[in-house]
């Protein structure tokens, strides 16, 4: 059994004349919190799209839970994506549904749960991310940025995923809410880790990353500069990382 939930093997992605991902070979540790860090344009979001099978590699493979997802056909890939939960940069809640309906959405789509069971599970999930009953029946436009992120997290957790992905989860949030969201992400991780749960965070928030991650992958210009545990990362002598750490 591999120690990794996700593995990239000779992964290359070229858009037009630009090489966005340049021969990546690394793995993301199972049951750990890994942050993919880097400056804008480093290829972080493209890498996440490869994990989800939303973008296919020019060459190489992406293995998720042992399956090369770039070789799956469309239907199998859609089925496979149920292993993922995702929190988007601005939550991406469906604006025509209330918070409750947003969280219930994947359950109604993919499970045969009764309405009572769905109600029970959704309220429990919303409760676990600190969303009140009153806020549960509000539309996303009536929620604050932090609340939207929490509802997004509850929606991502609805189908009990094995891998949770966060794309810049604290963009646009104030420092206190940022730490609240990170605390919530860490609690979510450790509450679920017993059934196999890997968290992958895309970020450029160095301070939060050092505080909350187990591993850090640092990317620059489509390449992995370092892939280390947090303590080793702090001691890295790589000039690019030193520059990032001193920000």
């Amino acid at each position: 059994m591999s120690d990794y939930s996700i593995e990239f093997k000779n992964l290359v992605k070229i858009f037009g004349q630009s090489t966005i991902l340049d021969n990546l070979n690394f793995g993301i540790h199972k049951n750990k919190i890994t942050t993919i860090l880097g400056f804008s344009g480093a290829g972080k979001t493209t890498l996440m799209k490869h994990i989800l099978g939303l973008t296919m590699p020019t060459s190489g493979d992406v293995l998720v839970l042992g399956t090369a997802i770039n070789h799956l056909d469309e239907l199998a890939l859609r089925e496979f994506r149920r292993n993922f939960g995702m929190v988007f940069q601005y939550a991406a809640l469906f604006d025509f549904l209330t918070s409750f309906e947003n969280v219930a959405f994947p359950l109604r789509e993919f499970t045969k749960m009764s309405e009572e069971q769905i109600q029970e599970k959704v309220l429990k999930l919303l409760d676990s991310v600190g969303i009140s009953r009153e806020a549960a029946y509000r539309l996303p436009s009536e929620l604050s940025g932090g609340m939207r992120k929490r509802v997004g997290l509850a929606r991502g957790l609805a189908l009990d995923p094995h891998i949770m992905l966060y794309d810049e989860p604290t963009s646009g949030l104030d420092p206190i809410t940022t730490h609240m969201v990170y605390d919530l992400m860490r609690d979510t991780h450790y509450n679920n880790v017993h059934h196999g749960f890997t968290s992958v965070i895309i970020s450029h928030d160095i301070h939060a990353t050092l505080k909350y991650s187990d591993y850090i992958v640092f990317m620059e210009k489509g390449r992995v500069v370092e892939h280390l545990d947090v303590e080793s990362f702090k001691k890295s002598e790589n000039p690019v990382i030193r520059r990032f750490l001193e920000l």
């Binding site: 989800l52 939303l54 859609r78 994506r81 149920r82 995702m86 988007f88 809640l93 604006d95 993919f110």
Partner: peptide, 14 residues
């Protein structure tokens, strides 16, 4: 533009 379509796709919905 608000990534709601990506959210559908990530859930496995066409």
């Amino acid at each position: 533009v608000t990534e709601q379509i990506d959210a559908l796709e990530v859930m496995g919905i066409n």
